[in-house]
């Protein structure tokens, strides 16, 4: 059952990371409005990375490189885990 648990945990962790990077990140930007922006009505980004407001930069980078890196790490690990799965039995 060790391999089965590894597969389940790996899938859950990767799914949560992808969900965070690809979608839920923006929820935090909305809820943490005061942290990322100054007071209204003249809201202004409080910090910048490479010229972009930090929250926007995070969305760009994590929504592309971030999720791809998670996918590549998952694929690499699964390539190895698959060999254990193919043994079957108590794995």
């Amino acid at each position: 059952m060790r391999t089965y648990r590894k597969e389940s945990w790996l899938t859950l962790i990767c799914f949560l990371l992808i969900m965070l990077f690809g979608g839920i990140l923006s929820v935090f930007f909305v809820l943490g409005k005061d942290l990322f922006f100054g007071p209204g009505p003249a809201f202004a980004a409080r910090s910048h990375v490479l010229g972009f407001p930090t929250h926007y930069f995070l969305l760009l980078v994590l929504g592309w490189f971030g999720v791809t890196a998670v996918g590549a790490a998952y694929a690499l690990y699964m390539d190895r885990l698959e060999k254990e799965i193919e043994k079957g039995g108590a794995a």
């Binding site: 799914f15 979608g23 923006s26 969305l59 592309w64 996918g71």
Partner: peptide, 23 residues
């Protein structure tokens, strides 16, 4: 920003397909 959030989710969706369904 909303349009960009939609397409970021669309890119991430491929990885959800990867971990939950594709193989």
């Amino acid at each position: 920003y909303l349009a960009i959030a939609i397409y970021a989710a669309f890119t991430a969706a491929f990885l959800v397909m990867l971990v939950l369904a594709a193989p």
